[in-house]
Computed example of a mutant assay.
Amino acid sequence: MESKNKTVIKSMSLLNLFLTRPQLTLNEIVELSQIPKTSVHRMLASLEEMRFLDKNADGKYSLGLLFLRFGQLVSERLDIRQLALPVMKVLRDDVGEAVNLIIKYGNEAMYIEKQDTNQPVRLYTAVGRKSPLYAGDSRIILAYLPEEERDRYVDQTELKPLGLGTITDKKKLREVLDKTREQGYTISKSELENYTTAISAPILNHSHNIIAGLSIAGPDIRFSEERLPELIDKVKKAALEISMKLGYKNTTW
Score class of each variant (00 low, 15 high):
Asp220Val: 02
Gly96Gln: 15
Ile211His: 07
Leu177Met: 14
Gly165Ser: 00
Gln72Arg: 15
Gly184Gln: 03
Ile9Cys: 00
Asp79Phe: 10
Ala238Asn: 02
Asn100Arg: 02
Thr168Phe: 10
Leu68Arg: 04
Thr196His: 01
Pro36Leu: 04
Lys160Ser: 13
Thr180Gly: 11
Gly163Ser: 01
Ile216Arg: 07
Gln156Pro: 06
Lys37His: 07
Pro202Ile: 13
Leu73Val: 13
Tyr185Ser: 05
Phe67Met: 09
Lys249Met: 13
Ser224Glu: 10
Asn194Ser: 03
Lys179Phe: 07
Ser243Val: 11
Glu76Leu: 11
Thr168Lys: 02
Leu78Ser: 05
Ile80Asn: 01
Ser243Met: 06
Gly136Tyr: 02
Met1Cys: 04
Lys89Ser: 08
Gly96Glu: 12
Glu49Cys: 08
Arg122Thr: 12
Arg21Gln: 07
Glu193Tyr: 12
Ile140His: 03
Gln72Cys: 09
Arg42Pro: 00
Lys237Leu: 11
Val121Trp: 08
Pro132Ser: 06
Arg129Lys: 10
Asp54Cys: 04
Asn16Arg: 09
Thr186Lys: 00
Arg150Phe: 11
Arg129Phe: 05
Ile141Trp: 07
Pro202Leu: 13
Ile232Thr: 02
Glu149Cys: 01
Leu68Met: 10
Asp116Gly: 06
Arg42Lys: 04
Arg21Thr: 05
Thr25Val: 08
Met1Trp: 01
Leu85Thr: 09
Lys37Met: 09
Arg92Gly: 06
Ile211Tyr: 03
Leu44Glu: 11
Arg222Met: 09
Leu32His: 06
Thr38Ala: 15
His41Arg: 12
Ala109Trp: 07
Gly163Val: 05
Val74His: 06
Ala45Ser: 14
Glu191His: 09
Gly163Trp: 05
Leu24Trp: 04
Glu230Val: 11
Pro229Cys: 09
Val99Pro: 08
Thr7Ser: 14
Arg222Cys: 00
Lys6His: 05
Tyr195Trp: 12
Lys249Trp: 03
Lys179Glu: 12
Phe67Gln: 12
Lys130Asn: 09
Ala198Pro: 11
Gly128His: 04
Thr157Ile: 12
Ala217Arg: 00
Arg222Ile: 06
Glu225Asp: 15
Asn118Gly: 11
Tyr195Phe: 10
Ala57Tyr: 03
Leu85Lys: 10
Lys170Val: 12
Leu101Ile: 08
Gly128Lys: 10
Val235His: 01
Lys55Ala: 04
Phe67Asp: 03
Leu78Asp: 01
Leu15Val: 00
Gln115Glu: 15
Leu24Ile: 09
Ser243Arg: 11
Val176Leu: 04
Glu226Ala: 11
Ile211Val: 15
Ser138Arg: 01
Arg227Phe: 01
Tyr248Thr: 06
Arg152Val: 12
Tyr105Phe: 14
Thr197Tyr: 00
Asn56Lys: 07
Tyr144Leu: 12
Ser11Asp: 05
Ser46Pro: 00
Pro229Gln: 07
Gln183Asp: 14
Gly106Ala: 12
Leu44Trp: 13
Leu32Cys: 03
Gly128Ile: 10
Glu230Gln: 12
Lys55Gln: 04
Lys249Glu: 14
Leu246Asn: 08
Arg77Pro: 00
Ala212Trp: 03
Leu173Trp: 04
Asp137Pro: 11
Thr252Arg: 14
